[in-house]
């Protein structure tokens, strides 16, 4: 029997095309981006929440802590930007935990793509959340009197550095997201990690006012360096050291947690 097969115009290449990993990850990042934009209520945590934090700290506590709400705002804002963006990264872990139980992840697993591509796609797609968080926070801060005291380029560098750090840390949340059974569990564990990391810093009060053991933690806490770097870049002051440490810690988070997250994803049935 002779079988005639009409070769269709669009055929899947027999062999993988080069740079597949990058293309697949970007296609999946686009998916994640579309999902976020189509359910904007998911962005509440990065739009409204930081504004509420600023209001509480500046107007409720600022006067008591630093004597003037205006001076306090200048010091608080770069630091709270770091906190906000890190909290935003938690959503990546929570969302992935929900997402992975759905059939669409079975389909991803049955496709000839790298196992890590869906995770990388989600983490990249969620970068939009960080941008939204920073725009919302700086906009509100500006409206109530925050002013960048350096130059726009340095301020931009502060934002990018913060995003890079949050991107690295989000791999830890992805890892947690792959380990936990329920989204609620992810959130619980993520908060346990986030609180000491973000509050165990000089974010809301000067380090000198804290007990010795806490000062010791602030000194070794990687987030302290990120907040110092953001303050240095936006307000002036030492930059090189904190920026160097931030880059180092970012690399460390990715090197440790990205492989762990991918491994946990592979093991998850």
């Amino acid at each position: 029997m002779t079988l005639t097969v009409t070769r269709p115009t669009t055929t899947v290449p027999e062999n993988p095309r080069p740079f597949g990993f990058v293309r697949h990850s970007l296609a999946l990042a686009r998916r994640s981006l579309i999902k976020t934009l189509r359910t904007p209520e998911q962005l509440l945590d990065v739009t409204l929440q930081p504004v509420i934090f600023v209001v509480v700290y500046v107007f409720l506590l600022g006067g008591a802590i630093s004597g003037s709400t205006h001076d306090y705002l200048q010091l608080l804002l770069p630091a709270i930007m770091v906190q906000t963006v890190m909290f935003g990264g938690m959503a990546t872990g929570v969302n992935l935990n929900t997402d992975i139980g759905k059939g669409v992840f079975d389909r991803f697993r049955s496709l000839p793509i790298a196992r890590s591509a869906p995770l990388v796609g989600s983490v990249l797609g969620d970068l939009i959340r960080y941008v939204v968080a920073i725009v919302s926070l700086l906009g509100f801060g500006y409206a109530i009197g925050f002013r960048i005291q350096t130059d726009p380029l340095s301020a931009l560098a502060a934002c990018l550095l913060t995003i890079l750090f949050a991107f690295s840390v989000s791999w830890a949340f992805v890892f947690i997201g792959m380990l936990m059974r329920q989204p609620g569990g992810v959130q619980g564990v993520a908060f346990l990690v986030l609180f000491p990391l973000t509050f165990g810093t000089s974010m809301v009060a000067p380090k000198e006012s804290m007990p010795g053991w806490l000062q010791a933690w602030v000194n070794v806490n990687p987030v302290s360096h990120v907040m110092d770097a953001a303050r240095g870049l936006m307000l002036g002051g030492p930059v090189a050291g904190p920026v160097g440490w931030t880059l180092l810690w970012s690399a460390a988070f990715i090197v440790v947690f990205a492989p762990l997250a991918v491994r946990a994803y592979r093991l998850r049935v």
Partner: peptide, 18 residues
């Protein structure tokens, strides 16, 4: 994917298939 349109769903698969 429920949040994606029918078209977006199929295009995504196509892209993942190179």
């Amino acid at each position: 994917d429920e949040d994606l349109t029918g078209m977006e769903n199929l295009v995504l698969i196509g892209m993942l298939l190179d």
